Amino acid sequence: MTTRMAHDSGRTTARHQERASGWLTFAGTLAMVIGAFNVIDGLVGLFNDDYYLVGDNKIMVFDFTAWGWFWLVLGVVQLAVGAGIIAGRMWARAVGVLFAVLAAIGHLAFLRAFPLWSVLTIGMCILLIYALTAPPSRARG
């Protein structure tokens, strides 16, 4: 008969003290959805200028091609940030709030071109900001 001995020193690491948070998992998933929406916005802006219904093809100071690149880059970054949030990275939470605010302001400017999509995305950005700021600082996704 063999005896198994555990060689645990009894100390707990910081990783075991972190609590799992459903809010952060939700926030990471939501950031990835918003990022995917922004990638779609960017691709439409780049490849199909006639899709949006604005008379002079300008929103604020940019044309749809510039907005397309803006949404495409923002969406790709938000996809990466969403993966970072799910992985439990603190930097991703901070950057996620920053890019959610940037996306909400961008969609506010884009409201005239695509109102329903923009209102939906602004609402999701507000929910994302709450989901990222509500859990404790040591919580993990």
Rank of each mutant, 00 (worst) to 15 (best):
F64A: 02
H7T: 01
A31Q: 01
I34A: 01
L53P: 04
I40Y: 04
F37S: 01
F64S: 00
L24K: 00
L72C: 06
D49A: 08
D50P: 08
W23I: 03
T29A: 15
Q78W: 00
A80I: 01
D56H: 14
I85K: 06
A87N: 08
F64G: 03
V54D: 08
W69Q: 09
W69V: 15
I86F: 12
F47D: 10
M90A: 15
A6L: 14
W67N: 07
S21C: 02
L43Q: 00
I34R: 02
R19N: 10
V61P: 04
F70W: 13
V73L: 15
D63T: 09
W71V: 09
V44F: 03
T29W: 03
N57Y: 13
N38R: 06
W23Q: 04
Q17M: 11
V61M: 08
T29N: 04
D56P: 05
D8A: 09
N48H: 07
G28F: 12
V77P: 03
W23N: 12
A36E: 03
I40W: 05
M90V: 15
G35V: 02
D63P: 00
G45N: 00
W67Y: 02
L72Y: 04
A87G: 06
W23M: 11
A36G: 15
E18H: 13
L74N: 09
N57T: 10
M5C: 10
A66G: 00
G84Y: 00
G35L: 04
R15G: 08
L46Y: 10
M32V: 12
F47H: 01
R15E: 10
G88F: 10
D49T: 11
M5W: 11
